[in-house]
């Protein structure tokens, strides 16, 4: 035993003496990474937002001129576009994914893991490539257009560069982020509770409304939140599929940094955008915790 060598109090014994030190110590590499790779850069962005226009230095007198510019120009339009597209994406994905998640959690057996692998694999392919597939599908004389023309005699122009296609792209890219939390959520609904509701006279619709939906709410919330946050910051869908039809906040920010070379304005836009998403995330996260969702709440 360690008591046999009482000459120097070893590091291990310090760990025994201070309760919780081992936990804090294990968390520290991650905490340092987040401090220098996440928190500091974000503070940097916030600070840059107060710098005068078109500078690349952080050491100027702070000013609010960038925010004045944002409110005087039409940036609110792109914010609204981003929020609107994200909200529509969330709603469409909820409608598409819930039946599938239900079937995967409650009806399918072996097929459920096949679908999981089939959908999950897509997460590892760059979304650009997958969106490019739609471009080939929808471009003039692409796979869809060519098929319609050759076999159905329908002349079509390019089906790209409109709002429904952008939404399609977002729905497509973020489907896994809605589906998997929903499957987890629906799995949390105990079979006997559903049966009991049927047994007490509830119809299928009533069971859905009063049992399935409320009890799988953690999954619904996490899925919606993930999809909302990811799609509100989406950049490729609108660019690749939408041409210049719609300018989202993310592409506004990007062009301030690239073409316009106005970092302070880009930073101010980012700050507003971050504040908006943080409010949404914190509001939603405060209403449940993930350990409950995983069903692994250990005793504290």
């Amino acid at each position: 035993m360690s008591d046999a060598s009482p000459v120097t109090p070893s590091k291990a014994r310090l760990l025994e003496r201070v309760p919780g030190l081992i936990g804090a110590l294990s968390a520290s590499p991650f905490a340092l990474l987040m401090l220098f790779g996440f928190v500091a850069p974000l503070l940097c962005v916030v600070w840059f937002g107060f710098m005068p226009s078109k500078t690349f230095s952080l050491l100027q007198t702070p000013t609010l001129e960038n925010y004045a510019t944002i409110f005087n120009q039409t940036y609110f339009k792109s914010i609204l576009w981003s929020l609107g597209l994200a909200a529509v994406t969330v709603v469409i994905l909820l409608v598409i994914c819930f039946p599938l998640a239900f079937a995967m959690a409650k009806i399918f057996k072996g097929a459920a893991s096949f679908i999981t692998y089939a959908i999950a694999t897509s997460l590892f392919v760059s979304e650009n490539i997958r969106l490019f597939g739609w471009v080939i599908g929808f471009m003039k004389r692409g796979v869809v257009g060519g098929t319609l023309e050759t076999w159905f005699g329908l002349q079509t122009d390019s089906l790209l560069y409109n709002i429904p296609v952008i939404i399609l792209g977002m729905v497509y890219v973020y489907l896994p982020f809605m589906l998997f939390p929903l499957v987890l959520g629906v799995k949390m609904v105990p079979d006997q509770v559903r049966e009991a509701a049927f047994d007490l006279g509830a119809s299928r619709w009533q069971v859905f409304k009063k049992i399935d939906l409320p009890l799988s709410m953690p999954g619904v919330m996490i899925g919606s939140l993930l999809v909302f946050v990811l799609s509100v910051g989406a950049i490729s869908e609108a660019k690749i599929l939408g041409g210049q039809k719609v300018v989202t906040i993310a592409s506004d920010i990007e062009s301030e940094f690239t073409y316009a070379q106005n970092w302070p304005l880009g930073s101010a836009l980012s700050t507003m955008f971050i504040a908006l998403t943080t409010v949404v995330v914190f509001f939603a996260l405060s209403r449940f915790d993930l350990e409950k969702l995983l069903g692994k709440k250990p005793a504290e």
Binding site: A24, A27, M34, G233, S270
Partner: peptide, 27 residues
């Protein structure tokens, strides 16, 4: 491990995931 900051840590771990990647890259 059980330690005092654990619950806060559990909440904060997920934060970067909920963050739009393009903005994170720019930051």
């Amino acid at each position: 491990y059980r330690w005092r900051g654990r619950q806060t840590f559990q909440r904060l771990v997920l934060l970067p995931l909920f963050f739009p990647q393009s903005v994170l890259g720019l930051a």
